Computed example of a mutant assay.
Amino acid sequence: MATAGTRRWTCLTAAAGSAVLMTGCMGAGDQLNVVGYGSPAEANSEVFNAFTQTSAGEGLAQAESYGASGDQSRAVGNGQPADFVHFSIEPDVSRLADQGLVAQDWNDNAWDGHVTTSVVVLVVREGNPDDITDWEDLVREDVEVVTPNPGSSGAARWNILAAYLSQIQAGGTEQEADEFTEDVVENIVAFPGSGRDATTSFLDGTGDVLLSYENEAILGLQQGEEYDYIVPDRSLLIQNAAAVTEEAPEEAREFLDFAVSPAGQEIYADFGFRPIDYAADEAEIGEIEGAGDPSDPFPEVERLATIDEDLGGWDQVVDDFFDEDGTITEIIEGSGLN
């Protein structure tokens, strides 16, 4: 299995984090429209290239569009062509199901609609000069935080929920978790529109710690960036949703099947994504370049929360945290960041 460091990146030429339409490597045959959030752009491209080497994908070309998850979902809802959608959070697919663009039972399958998974990590400057080791360091007076805006970015919702849950996982009350989240938000110095833009801001020198996905941290190190990252012993399992649209050709469904297969999950793992449960037992994961420990790239998280088990599912999460009167919405509005 090839490592990400040896792969050729000539197919993916759009600026990271921007919603730019581009044609993939295949030059003949039918075209598959792939629309997603920014984080899996490189991995999706490599999975697609591998798919074209199968009988189901032979001769297939692709057009890709990537950006902030919520923005991309709304774009598809407003008419942007899409056959396969891959978003950060389930509500961005459910929105399309409500519009009749995706089947209502899109996640009624063996992989529960999740094609990629990761965990929330803390990205710090190389050598960790500020001695940041855990969530509580994010509320220190001398620490500045970078994270994307949950109004447009699915990554931001995972990040801020992980911060909130870290206090529940430590035995705190909901009120204490609310207060901690408010203190974290007070330390945010950059609030970009997408996870990729947040990473760019951090790499440009803003802030002391970046809230990010483990896979995004690994990918940056694979591409030569210089920083460290910490996998806290309390974190949140990131489960990224994907589906085919109702009018998509059969090739889109076959691509989805390939993406969740052991072969597809091995490629995603090369780019820092943790294999989904559906394929984890059969996927062969070797050393992962860029991981904190390449030989043990996905360390077990001692206390790993999930949206369904710890927060009652995404519908409840949106109601409690992200609606107009949601806890996190009110905290952000009170901070003046949005």
Rank of each mutant, 00 (worst) to 15 (best):
V124H: 01
P129Y: 11
Q175T: 15
P150H: 06
A162W: 00
V145A: 02
A163M: 01
Q239P: 06
R196C: 06
A190L: 04
R196L: 15
Y229R: 07
D130M: 11
D142C: 12
I188C: 06
Y227A: 06
E214I: 05
E182Y: 00
R140P: 05
N149T: 03
F180P: 03
V185E: 03
D204Q: 12
V209E: 00
N128T: 13
V143F: 00
A170F: 05
E246F: 01
Q169K: 12
V189E: 05
L138Y: 00
D228M: 03
N159H: 11
F180E: 02
V146Q: 11
V189D: 00
V244N: 10
R234I: 04
E144I: 02
N149E: 05
W135Q: 08
T206W: 01
P150D: 05
W135E: 07
A242N: 07
L203N: 15
E176Y: 09
W158S: 12
E226H: 12
N215I: 01
I218F: 10
T173Y: 05
N187W: 01
V231N: 06
E174K: 05
G154E: 08
A163K: 04
V209G: 00
E126I: 07
P192D: 14
D134N: 10
E216Y: 10
A217M: 03
T181F: 00
D208H: 14
G171N: 11
Y227V: 04
E126T: 09
A243Y: 06
Q222L: 10
E126K: 13
S152P: 14
A156Q: 07
L165W: 04
V143L: 07
D204A: 15
N149M: 09
A198K: 08
P192W: 15
E226L: 09
T181N: 00
D137G: 10
T245P: 02
V184L: 06
N159P: 00
E186G: 05
Y164V: 02
D178R: 11
P232V: 09
I160Y: 13
N187V: 04
A155K: 01
R234A: 03
V231W: 02
L237Q: 13
E246H: 04
D204L: 11
N215V: 08
Q223T: 11
E226D: 13
G171K: 11
Y227D: 04
V189Q: 09
T245V: 10
G195E: 07
D183Q: 15
E179W: 02
Q239I: 08
A241E: 01
Y213F: 13
G193F: 09
I218A: 07
E176T: 07
D197Q: 15
A241D: 05
